[in-house]
């Protein structure tokens, strides 16, 4: 079972982070580059502190998280049921799967021009891009999970005269839950990657916008603050999703390994 906070794991990760910080400090002191081009960790943490105190960092983080949350929820709410349908209905799968496989490799970023044209500037185009980035992976993962459920379980369901609702709630959903949670975990990382990129173009707030804006102002320390914040939030999101994987209703699958 997953234990993120064992003493040894914490110590080891602190060690590696510490080493990187040290290397960073040493390089910035001795490389001869100016602080504008390659700010030292102390500069960056000072700037971070000031951005925290004046509320800028929180504002942009919340803006990004809001878009990710909405887009991601929409993708999960539509994508998972859609994936279940495709997994169960052979005809629909044959018709729609090629279409999905065709759309899936198109990077969400390629949709930016259209998204801006359709939704203007603001939250909607960003949310739309997040949605696109999460929707297809979730549909495909759910579809694969559903179609790989052992037919024996459906025979058991038929044998005990399950109605349609029971087939979904007592067979399909519990059977795919572990796979779907893994997919959600992967997708939220993708969504988090995409939001930053989307914010560099389509909106006036968020961590991506903050980075772009700081670049225009030649504040590399702020750029780095943005990057560090993105990393921290990304780790936290992943931890949250992993905790979701430990809930009781998936424990039957975890014990199997």
């Amino acid at each position: 079972m997953f234990k993120p906070f064992s003493a040894r794991a914490v110590f080891n990760s602190l060690l590696s982070f510490g080493t990187v910080l040290l290397l960073w400090q040493v390089t910035s002191s001795f490389s001869g580059w100016s602080s504008q081009v390659f700010p030292s960790p102390t500069t960056v943490f000072n700037s971070m502190w000031s951005l925290i105190v004046n509320g800028t960092l929180l504002k942009h983080s919340v803006a990004s998280l809001y878009r990710v949350t909405v887009g991601f929820y929409l993708a999960a709410l539509l994508g998972i049921p859609f994936g279940i349908m495709l997994g169960r209905m052979l005809l629909m799968r044959d018709m729609l799967n090629p279409l999905i496989q065709f759309l899936r490799p198109i990077s969400p970023l390629a949709w930016i021009p259209l998204a801006m044209l359709w939704f203007g500037i603001g939250d909607q185009p960003a949310i739309f891009l997040i949605f696109l980035s999460s929707f297809f992976p979730l549909v495909v993962a759910t579809m694969v999970a559903v179609s790989s459920i052992s037919p024996v379980y459906f025979q058991v369901a038929a044998n005990f005269c399950f109605n349609r609702t029971e087939v979904v709630t007592k067979i399909i959903v519990p059977a795919i839950l572990p796979d779907v949670i893994t997919a959600l975990r992967l997708t939220i990382s993708i969504a988090w990657l995409v939001v930053v990129a989307a914010e560099m173009i389509a909106v006036q707030s968020g961590l991506g916008y903050m980075i772009l804006d700081s670049r225009n102002a030649l504040r590399m320390d702020y750029v780095m603050v943005g990057m560090i914040t993105i990393g921290i939030i990304g780790v936290i999101l992943d931890l949250l999703m992993r905790m979701l994987g430990n809930i009781e209703s998936t424990s039957w699958a975890i014990r199997k390994h």
């Binding site: 024996v152 025979q155 058991v156 038929a158 044998n159 005269c161 519990p174 839950l177 039957w252 699958a253």
Partner: peptide, 19 residues
């Protein structure tokens, strides 16, 4: 079609693993 009047005990595990 299958019916609840005929219960089948499967050769390979037919227990639902999530229950």
């Amino acid at each position: 079609a299958p019916s609840a009047d005929i219960i089948f005990v499967f050769q390979h595990n037919g227990l639902l693993p999530w229950m």
